[in-house]
Amino acid sequence: MLKNYTVDLPPNGWVWFRFWEDECVVFHELSGQIHLIAEMGAFLLKLISEQPYTRSQLLAHFVNSFELSIDFNLEEFLDKLIIEYQNLGLLTVTENS
């Protein structure tokens, strides 16, 4: 997994969001799939839906917004989440040089 990347929405604008409180519903227009995403996932998508973020910016936002336990591996969690959403076509990841 890359350690220095930027996360953004897919280029063609095929992804649509609805945010309510700490939940989010995402509609992938091309595949017609709809996903219900809660808490940290919804928090991530809310950020990305507004502007692109780098990995380190995202990590900082998570640290500031959630009370994470000491043994929680945030980096691993975030990387996994991003791969999952990338596979669903909800966001794109580009490597930073």
């Binding site: 609805r18 309510w20 409180e21 519903v25 227009e29 219900l36 809660a38």
Partner: peptide, 20 residues
């Protein structure tokens, strides 16, 4: 929650895929 309701409604929609 509204998000859960939306998902459940989408599952119970007849023409959801036709409307995009």
């Amino acid at each position: 929650s509204k998000a859960k309701a939306l998902l459940k409604l989408a599952e119970n929609c007849f023409n959801y895929s036709a409307l995009g």
